[in-house]
Protein backbone atom coordinates (compact mmCIF):
# COMPACT_ATOMS: atom_id res chain seq x y z
CA UNK A 1 0.00 0.00 0.00
CA UNK A 2 2.96 2.35 -0.38
CA UNK A 3 1.07 3.77 -3.35
CA UNK A 4 -1.10 5.76 -0.97
CA UNK A 5 1.80 7.24 0.91
CA UNK A 6 0.74 10.88 0.86
CA UNK A 7 3.23 13.33 -0.49
CA UNK A 8 1.95 15.80 2.10
CA UNK A 9 3.50 13.59 4.75
CA UNK A 10 6.71 13.22 2.82
CA UNK A 11 7.03 16.96 2.78
CA UNK A 12 6.66 17.25 6.53
CA UNK A 13 9.00 14.42 7.29
CA UNK A 14 11.74 15.71 5.03
CA UNK A 15 11.95 18.75 7.25
CA UNK A 16 11.56 16.90 10.49
CA UNK A 17 13.81 14.04 9.70
CA UNK A 18 16.97 16.01 9.01
CA UNK A 19 18.20 16.76 12.49
CA UNK A 20 21.37 18.45 11.26
CA UNK A 21 23.53 16.14 13.25
CA UNK A 22 26.04 13.55 12.28
CA UNK A 23 25.86 10.41 14.38
CA UNK A 24 29.62 10.49 14.61
CA UNK A 25 29.62 13.82 16.41
CA UNK A 26 26.63 13.45 18.67
CA UNK A 27 26.81 14.86 22.16
CA UNK A 28 24.27 14.58 24.95
CA UNK A 29 22.46 17.76 23.87
CA UNK A 30 22.12 16.60 20.27
CA UNK A 31 20.97 13.21 21.52
CA UNK A 32 18.27 14.79 23.65
CA UNK A 33 17.17 16.76 20.61
CA UNK A 34 16.79 13.46 18.75
CA UNK A 35 14.79 12.04 21.66
CA UNK A 36 12.46 15.04 21.76
CA UNK A 37 11.98 14.92 18.01
CA UNK A 38 11.24 11.23 17.54
CA UNK A 39 10.17 9.60 20.81
CA UNK A 40 6.50 10.43 20.24
CA UNK A 41 6.47 8.66 16.87
CA UNK A 42 8.33 5.68 18.28
CA UNK A 43 5.96 5.38 21.23
CA UNK A 44 2.92 5.73 18.98
CA UNK A 45 4.11 2.93 16.67
CA UNK A 46 4.84 0.55 19.55
CA UNK A 47 1.42 1.23 21.07
CA UNK A 48 -0.31 0.97 17.69
CA UNK A 49 0.99 -2.60 17.46
CA UNK A 50 -1.06 -3.36 20.55
CA UNK A 51 1.72 -3.42 23.12
CA UNK A 52 0.98 -2.63 26.75
CA UNK A 53 2.59 0.47 28.20
CA UNK A 54 5.30 -1.65 29.80
CA UNK A 55 6.12 -3.61 26.62
CA UNK A 56 6.00 -0.46 24.51
CA UNK A 57 8.52 1.12 26.90
CA UNK A 58 10.83 -1.87 26.31
CA UNK A 59 10.41 -1.63 22.52
CA UNK A 60 11.20 2.09 22.44
CA UNK A 61 14.17 1.66 24.73
CA UNK A 62 15.37 -1.18 22.51
CA UNK A 63 15.31 1.09 19.48
CA UNK A 64 17.39 3.73 21.27
CA UNK A 65 19.86 1.03 22.34
CA UNK A 66 20.07 -0.15 18.71
CA UNK A 67 20.94 3.40 17.73
CA UNK A 68 23.57 3.61 20.49
CA UNK A 69 25.19 0.35 19.39
CA UNK A 70 25.07 1.40 15.70
CA UNK A 71 26.26 5.01 16.06
CA UNK A 72 29.69 4.30 14.62
CA UNK A 73 28.23 2.61 11.53
CA UNK A 74 25.27 4.81 10.56
CA UNK A 75 26.05 6.46 7.25
CA UNK A 76 22.87 8.40 6.54
CA UNK A 77 21.94 10.78 9.36
CA UNK A 78 19.11 12.25 7.28
CA UNK A 79 17.22 9.01 7.68
CA UNK A 80 17.65 8.55 11.43
CA UNK A 81 13.99 9.36 12.08
CA UNK A 82 12.69 6.73 9.68
CA UNK A 83 15.33 4.33 10.98
CA UNK A 84 14.20 4.84 14.60
CA UNK A 85 10.53 4.33 13.73
CA UNK A 86 11.29 1.23 11.66
CA UNK A 87 13.53 -0.19 14.37
CA UNK A 88 10.89 0.45 17.04
CA UNK A 89 8.40 -1.42 14.89
CA UNK A 90 10.78 -4.39 14.59
CA UNK A 91 11.42 -4.49 18.34
CA UNK A 92 7.70 -4.13 19.08
CA UNK A 93 6.78 -6.99 16.73
CA UNK A 94 9.37 -9.20 18.39
CA UNK A 95 8.18 -8.34 21.90
CA UNK A 96 4.58 -8.97 20.85
CA UNK A 97 5.55 -12.42 19.57
CA UNK A 98 7.29 -13.20 22.83
CA UNK A 99 4.26 -11.98 24.78
CA UNK A 100 2.11 -14.43 22.77
CA UNK A 101 4.43 -17.24 23.78
CA UNK A 102 6.08 -17.72 20.41
CA UNK A 103 9.66 -18.95 20.60
CA UNK A 104 12.10 -16.49 19.09
CA UNK A 105 15.58 -17.76 18.31
CA UNK A 106 18.43 -15.85 19.98
CA UNK A 107 19.61 -14.46 16.67
CA UNK A 108 16.03 -13.55 15.85
CA UNK A 109 15.99 -11.42 18.98
CA UNK A 110 18.78 -9.25 17.67
CA UNK A 111 17.98 -8.32 14.10
CA UNK A 112 20.21 -7.01 11.42
CA UNK A 113 20.32 -3.24 11.51
CA UNK A 114 17.01 -2.03 10.16
CA UNK A 115 16.64 -0.51 6.73
CA UNK A 116 14.54 2.65 7.14
CA UNK A 117 11.03 2.07 5.82
CA UNK A 118 9.97 5.10 3.71
CA UNK A 119 6.35 4.37 4.67
CA UNK A 120 7.27 5.32 8.25
CA UNK A 121 7.09 8.94 7.05
CA UNK A 122 3.35 8.97 7.72
CA UNK A 123 3.94 8.58 11.45
CA UNK A 124 3.75 12.30 11.96
CA UNK A 125 1.45 14.61 13.95
CA UNK A 126 0.76 16.93 11.01
CA UNK A 127 -0.19 14.04 8.80
CA UNK A 128 -2.27 12.66 11.66
CA UNK A 129 -4.28 15.91 11.82
CA UNK A 130 -4.76 15.65 8.06
CA UNK A 131 -6.09 12.10 8.50
CA UNK A 132 -8.50 13.27 11.21
CA UNK A 133 -9.99 15.77 8.76
CA UNK A 134 -10.59 12.86 6.39
CA UNK A 135 -12.09 10.76 9.20
CA UNK A 136 -14.61 13.56 9.71
CA UNK A 137 -15.75 13.12 6.11
CA UNK A 138 -16.77 9.53 6.78
CA UNK A 139 -20.29 8.75 7.90
CA UNK A 140 -21.32 6.71 10.89
CA UNK A 141 -20.45 4.29 12.29
CA UNK A 142 -16.99 4.79 10.74
CA UNK A 143 -16.37 8.20 12.29
CA UNK A 144 -17.17 7.06 15.82
CA UNK A 145 -15.55 3.67 15.45
CA UNK A 146 -12.26 5.07 14.17
CA UNK A 147 -12.34 7.68 16.91
CA UNK A 148 -12.76 5.01 19.61
CA UNK A 149 -10.15 2.78 18.00
CA UNK A 150 -7.60 5.57 17.80
CA UNK A 151 -8.20 7.39 21.08
CA UNK A 152 -8.63 4.46 23.44
CA UNK A 153 -5.53 2.29 23.01
CA UNK A 154 -6.62 -0.29 25.54
CA UNK A 155 -10.30 -0.50 24.46
CA UNK A 156 -11.54 -3.98 23.66
CA UNK A 157 -13.87 -4.84 20.81
CA UNK A 158 -16.58 -5.61 23.37
CA UNK A 159 -16.37 -2.08 24.79
CA UNK A 160 -16.46 -0.53 21.32
CA UNK A 161 -19.47 -2.74 20.48
CA UNK A 162 -21.37 -1.45 23.52
CA UNK A 163 -20.54 2.17 22.76
CA UNK A 164 -21.64 1.90 19.12
CA UNK A 165 -24.47 -0.57 19.65
CA UNK A 166 -22.91 -3.08 17.24
CA UNK A 167 -22.63 -6.87 17.57
CA UNK A 168 -19.18 -7.68 18.97
CA UNK A 169 -18.44 -9.90 15.99
CA UNK A 170 -18.93 -7.07 13.55
CA UNK A 171 -16.51 -4.59 15.16
CA UNK A 172 -13.43 -6.08 13.47
CA UNK A 173 -14.93 -6.30 9.97
CA UNK A 174 -16.53 -2.87 10.30
CA UNK A 175 -13.24 -1.36 11.38
CA UNK A 176 -11.49 -2.97 8.40
CA UNK A 177 -14.14 -1.55 6.06
CA UNK A 178 -13.83 1.92 7.61
CA UNK A 179 -10.05 1.86 7.38
CA UNK A 180 -10.37 0.91 3.69
CA UNK A 181 -12.65 3.88 3.06
CA UNK A 182 -10.25 6.14 4.93
CA UNK A 183 -7.36 4.85 2.84
CA UNK A 184 -9.35 5.52 -0.32
CA UNK A 185 -9.87 9.15 0.73
CA UNK A 186 -6.17 9.52 1.51
CA UNK A 187 -5.26 7.97 -1.83
CA UNK A 188 -7.46 10.57 -3.56
CA UNK A 189 -5.45 13.28 -1.77
CA UNK A 190 -2.22 11.77 -3.04
CA UNK A 191 -3.61 11.54 -6.57
CA UNK A 192 -4.81 15.15 -6.42
CA UNK A 193 -1.44 16.39 -5.23
CA UNK A 194 0.41 14.45 -7.89
CA UNK A 195 -1.93 15.79 -10.58
CA UNK A 196 -1.51 19.41 -9.53
Amino acid sequence: MTGCLPSIANGHMTDDISPDISPHHLDQDAWEDLVARFEGRMWAVARALGLSSSDAADAVQGAWLRLVESLDSIRDPDRIGAWLVTTTRHEAVRLARRARGEVVSPSGEVPETAVPDPAAAVVDADFGRHVWRRVDLLGEPCRSLLRLWALHPDARYAQIAVRLDLPVGSVGPTRARCVSRLRALLAEDTGAEEAS
Binding site: G40, A44, V45, A57, Q61, W64, L67, V135, L146
Partner: peptide
Protein backbone atom coordinates in the same frame (compact mmCIF):
# COMPACT_ATOMS: atom_id res chain seq x y z
CA UNK B 1 -0.16 0.58 12.68
CA UNK B 2 1.44 3.60 10.99
CA UNK B 3 -1.99 5.04 10.21
CA UNK B 4 -3.15 4.44 13.78
CA UNK B 5 0.07 5.92 15.18
CA UNK B 6 -0.38 9.03 13.01
CA UNK B 7 -3.98 9.43 14.23
CA UNK B 8 -2.91 9.24 17.86
CA UNK B 9 -0.05 11.68 17.29
CA UNK B 10 -2.44 14.05 15.54
CA UNK B 11 -4.84 13.88 18.47
CA UNK B 12 -2.14 14.17 21.11
CA UNK B 13 -3.57 11.15 22.90
CA UNK B 14 -1.45 8.56 24.69
CA UNK B 15 1.63 10.76 25.31
CA UNK B 16 5.06 9.28 26.02
CA UNK B 17 5.40 8.47 29.73
CA UNK B 18 8.08 10.48 31.54
CA UNK B 19 10.03 7.38 32.51
CA UNK B 20 10.27 6.36 28.84
CA UNK B 21 11.67 9.78 27.95
CA UNK B 22 14.14 9.67 30.83
CA UNK B 23 15.39 6.23 29.75
CA UNK B 24 15.80 7.45 26.17
CA UNK B 25 17.82 10.49 27.25
CA UNK B 26 20.03 8.34 29.49
CA UNK B 27 20.74 5.79 26.74
CA UNK B 28 23.38 7.97 25.11
Amino acid sequence: EYLLAALRLGAGSDPVPARVSAAARAAF
